[in-house]
Amino acid sequence: MMHKISIKVNGDLYVLSVEPWKTLNQVLREDLNLTGTKLGCGTGDCGACTVLVDGRSVTSCLTLAVEMDGKEILTVEGLAPAGEELHPIQRAFVEKGAIQCGYCTPGMELSALYLLKNNPSPSEAEIREALSGNLCRCTGYNKIVEAVQWAAKELKAEKSKSTRSK
């Protein structure tokens, strides 16, 4: 049986019919052609498929699309603020050498975003803990951790700038 759902992905509203056994990952990649969200394992272990649902990071490979009715979803394609090329987290990943093959990158960035929203000044240990649901086989994580530290600083600087100018 098909279920009708309406979801907002990166601000765009989609009304779709989905089979109950389709995962959010399949709907994003196959139906919406948003292939930035990757699939590394399909069993919740690697985090390559991480997206935010109503602000919470989840693995899209273990999320049923039927359960997404009425939800707001953020994927890597929606990360950069309107009118800008890169989100500070993305810029940090690029500048700090946190990207090699790039397959883990979209998921890592969303996990980093989730962390920094809830904890704007994380310690190194907190960053490592927050990224432990995202596996990377290329970088050894250290450059990713540095990138997140750098992004945290950037975001805080941006924030204080914008509050001052208000």
Binding site: G44, G47, S57, T59, L62, T63, S111, A130, G133
Partner: peptide, 8 residues
């Protein structure tokens, strides 16, 4: 588990 799994 991990952050994501704890969120689900």
């Amino acid at each position: 588990a991990t952050v994501q799994i704890r969120n689900m």
